[in-house]
Structures are given as structure tokens and as C-alpha cells.
């Protein structure tokens, strides 16, 4: 069983419609630790040693955040700048994160159509998240296709939130139980829509034997 770390970064959680419910649901899953970075570091004084220790104590890391200006909220950027140190995460002897997995779970206000070449955001979300993907690569983390909720502001209206939250729980459990389909992940290597390729519990043994 893998240990999963959810790093939640949301500067206004009390007004959140999706991320708060996602985090609440995540915290009910065994083997998943949820950390609210804005609650822990409201004044941006990040405890680097504690964060690095936390990373080393987990096998899969989830960045959960609302998509702000095609990037992460400020505190998560600060977290990357400080915690992913040379000699720890990358560079000479910087292999402490090697072999772990990184999943980006984000919520975007725009519709999925907007994140296309023709749409008004012009790029796919996978492309827009390239800095995180390259960060993962440099840190020898296995970068997973992002888990995204589009039209997140309208999601409450059409009941997609409940569905999304449940899917999130399934993804986290799959991460924990190592049930993400490695073949499908390797083949697709692109935007994970409609969902990440999760192997059902019954076929789990077969995959492990293959791998």
C-alpha cells in the first residue's frame, strides 16, 4: 500500500465550492494524508525541513488547487521554490523524491472547450501545466496525467461536484493501492479525460504479475 500525500492549496477555503469537499472526502480515506498549506503557513513561513520529511514519508504526492492564472496559487509556488531544494529534490545527490508519483488535481473555471487551440485559452491544460510536469521530471517523480474539473463554478448547479468528488476518491484509492494502469498511462500520455485509467480490483493481480 502506498502512502498518499494531498497538498491542498486554496487561499479562500471557506468560499470554496469544490476543493473543500474534495479535501474533506480525501481525508476520510485510509492511507491518505491531507495537508492544508494555507492553514499551516498563513504567513508563508514554510518549514522546509518538515515539508521535506513529509515528502519522504509518502510515496505519491497530490497537488490539489484551484487553477489560478494558468498556474498554482502563490503559496504552492512558494512551497515548490523552497522545499524542492537542490541536493534534495534535484541536482547532485538530489534523489530523495526519485520513484515517487506526482498527481495534479485542479479545478478550472473555464469549460473544457476553452482549453483547446481554438478556445479562448488557446492551450490544453496539459500544456499549461508543463512547468509542473517538467518539475516532476527533474525531481525524478513519475508525473501522472492531471485530474481536472472544468467549468468548476457551474459544477454545483449540474451536480457534477458530487460525481467529481467521488471520482477523486477513487483516484486516490487507486494511487494508494497502485491500481493506476501503467500501460494505459504510458500509451495515452496526454490529457486524462474523461478519467485516469484505473484498473478494477479484480484485474489488479494480473497487472502486478505483468509488471
Amino acid at each position: 500500500m502506498k502512502r498518499v500525500l494531498v497538498l491542498l492549496s486554496h487561499p479562500n477555503l471557506s468560499q470554496s465550492t469544490v476543493n473543500r469537499r474534495m479535501a474533506q472526502r480525501a481525508s476520510t480515506i485510509d492511507g491518505v494524508s491531507v495537508v492544508d498549506l494555507y492553514a499551516l503557513y498563513p504567513r508563508y513561513k514554510i518549514d522546509i525541513d518538515a515539508e521535506q520529511a513529509r515528502l519522504q514519508a509518502h510515496d505519491a504526492i497530490v497537488f490539489q488547487f484551484p487553477f489560478y492564472w494558468y498556474s498554482t496559487p502563490a503559496l504552492l509556488k512558494e512551497w515548490q521554490d523552497l522545499v524542492l531544494e537542490h541536493g534534495f529534490a534535484y541536482g547532485t545527490a538530489g534523489d530523495k523524491l526519485a520513484g515517487k508519483q506526482l498527481l495534479v488535481a485542479t479545478t478550472a473555471g473555464g469549460a473544457i472547450d476553452a482549453y483547446t487551440e481554438q478556445g479562448h485559452n488557446h492551450f490544453s491544460i496539459r500544456t499549461l501545466l508543463a512547468p509542473l510536469e517538467q518539475t516532476a521530471t527533474l525531481c525524478q517523480l513519475q508525473y501522472l496525467p492531471p485530474f481536472v474539473l472544468f467549468s468548476s463554478l457551474a459544477a454545483c448547479k449540474d451536480k457534477r461536484v458530487t460525481e467529481h468528488v467521488e471520482q477523486y476518491a477513487q483516484v486516490l484509492e487507486a494511487l494508494r493501492d497502485n491500481r493506476l494502469d501503467p500501460v494505459a498511462l504510458a500509451e495515452r500520455n496526454l490529457l486524462a479525460q474523461p478519467a485516469l485509467p484505473i484498473v478494477s480490483r479484480t484485474t489488479l493481480d494480473g497487472i502486478h504479475n505483468d509488471g
Binding site: 487561499p11 479562500n12 465550492t17 463554478l153 457551474a154 448547479k157
Partner: peptide, 11 residues
Amino acid sequence: KNWQPPGNTDI
């Protein structure tokens, strides 16, 4: 104000 979701949030 800065962390208000954009647009109409009275959903």
C-alpha cells in the same frame, strides 16, 4: 476580494 471566484457565484 482577491480570492472571490470570478463571475456570478450565487449558485
